[in-house]
Write a protein that binds this DNA or RNA. Structure first.
Lengths: 336, 336
DNA sequence: TTGAAAGCGCTAACAC
DNA sequence: GTGTTAGCGCTTTCAA
């Protein structure tokens, strides 16, 4: 490994001068700078970032903590953060939290040990108090996909209720009145919030969402299938179905089709997230776009700014609003 | 930030002793060790890994370089590496190469600056020579999804030809004789290798793969659609279609169905990779499993071992073989 | 068993 | 404009 000393020796200058050249400080004579630069390329010198981080207490590293990288949603999140990291010349440290409070915290501490002071955290299990305490310690900590009032300016989140409301209104505008909902038993607030949006939109249209029209299951394809089967077995009648997310929606469509029910001919189906699958399934799924990649990129930027002492406007919030993506899984309700 | 000095001071010992306790070295008296441990927890001391890496020249960090994290395939790759990292208590440094030679190299050098000596690289554009030179410099460099003879013991790869062969034979065993192929213009060797497998399997059955039964396009859903349209327009007749990967297969199925052709009733379709989409599409896709997560986890292990001077058996290769996943997109060929 | 001290590669005063 | 120097937090001889 070639160090700054090697460069200094070969170029016949002090390490301080080399350091200045590396950092493009203006305080170096032209001839000297040229010589040093030449030596740097000749020797292939690259500053050791551990040493740099050690002395400067900042590592130009951004950490991302998500539950599970293999899920498309989190892959996109990571990709968004990576875009920012690349643009700012930061390194990206990834950690899976595996949906556990303790590993969430472990991951964060491990990041800290690396002098990684910009952190984007997707937390589901830690309670608000823990997070608030953590945020106090770590100026560059940003929470993604969750809103904590006391941390308003550190949360990058999505208006789930507005999204659910919007897609419900869309269904309403297509003449649907008998609407079933497949929600999830997912740990965070999202299911409740989205359900809330649906209920409100329905209420405003003078409709009530009957309890027995709601079925809940795990937030994946299988869950969607199971929920629809349960709905069908109960003898539930509906012309449209709102699923918690795309995965459940796809499962639901499959179950519907397996039961000989045409989608969207007899039943319209909508999802949430706009994952890749929504373009792969038949019919293509109408859904709400969850701009997670963009949000993550934004969050990473915010985390970096905060870690550098910028963007201290405590009152500013970072709320994203999902948008409707019309595809083929919704049709006009058949007049009854 | 609480440092080793703080702990030493509070515990009334030297930093060397604290270091020994942290490392579980046996050379510390019981009473002393207990006291130090107590102080460590009380103060919440965590060793700074930059300092540690600086002095020990090893950072317990594994780097992963892939083209694009937002693609499911690479997300799974990252997840596999993460599993190993977690198990070995390593950190995971991610870098996107964006499909470019230069950024591939940049990413690797940047990893090196971090004293990250175990690296898993998914390289597509760099030539073998560059890679061989790199591998010489970096003992812990492992190449994934590519085979370079001179680096046999450092490559973790998949037998694409065997996979293609296997799935072709599967189609053959279902009575298909008129087979079309949708291949891709992807940059690496995989398309050619898979095509090769198909051709060979067909040849062994006394069948020839006619040029005009092959169509090539970009390796995504859209490409699959386009290719099928082209095939259909040419008036190509086939009862089975082999797609380069799952994404193209799904696109192909959609195009087929849009053209009023029943899948698998009239045309059977198979893919490659076994991505999540293959369970989302209708009919569910029969495909070859590409165990990328497992492979990445394996590769990460190998990289760590190599970086620590182990596993020097230069003759050992690391070849994975894909397995058939039967779903619903293949039917018996209709007797003609 | 424990401590003192040197030094990893780099940056940032401070001096000249 | 350039060099000297003192650390950053930690590990690791070498002595005691």
């Amino acid at each position: 490994m070639v160090t700054i000393k090697d460069v200094a020796r070969v170029a016949g200058v002090s390490t301080a001068t080399v350091s200045r050249v590396v950092h493009d400080g203006g305080q170096v004579g032209d001839a000297c700078r040229a010589r040093v630069k030449k030596v740097i390329t000749e020797l292939g010198y690259r500053p050791n970032s551990n040493a740099r981080a050690l002395v400067s207490k900042s590592s130009e590293t951004i950490g991302v903590v998500t539950p599970k990288l293999s899920m498309t949603f989190f892959g996109c999140l990571a990709a968004g953060a990576e875009t920012t990291a690349r643009a700012k010349n930061f390194k990206l440290l990834m950690s899976n939290s595996l949906y556990e409070t303790q590993s969430e915290l472990d991951a964060i501490y491990s990041l800290r040990e690396h002098s990684c002071d910009a952190i984007v955290l997707h937390s589901e299990y830690s309670d608000e108090e823990t997070l608030i305490k953590l945020a106090k310690d770590i100026p560059g900590l940003v929470i993604i996909n969750r809103f904590i009032p006391q941390l308003a300016n550190r949360c990058v989140w999505l208006d789930n209720e507005a999204g659910a409301r919007k897609i419900t209104e869309y269904l309403l505008s297509h003449g649907h009145k008998d609407i079933a909902v497949v929600t999830s038993i997912y740990a965070n607030n999202d299911p409740a919030t989205r359900l809330n949006g649906v209920t409100k939109a329905l209420a405003e249209a003078g409709l009530e969402l009957a309890k027995h029209n709601i079925e809940s299951a795990t937030a994946n394809m299988r869950g969607g299938e199971d929920a629809v089967k349960a709905l069908l077995e109960k003898g539930c009648k509906f012309t449209a179905l709102i699923a918690y997310n795309d995965l459940m929606a796809v499962g639901a469509m499959n179950a519907l089709q397996d039961a000989g029910i045409d989608v969207p001919g007899e039943v319209s189906v909508v999802g949430f997230d706009n994952l890749y699958v929504s373009k792969a399934c038949r019919p293509n799924l109408t859904t709400m776009e969850y701009p997670i990649e963009e949000m993550a990129s934004y969050a990473a930027n915010l985390a970096i700014e905060l870690s550098q002492g910028g963007n201290q406007t405590a009152t500013k919030t970072h709320l994203f609003v999902p948008s409707l993506v019309e595809r083929q899984s919704v049709a006009l309700a058949r007049s009854t």
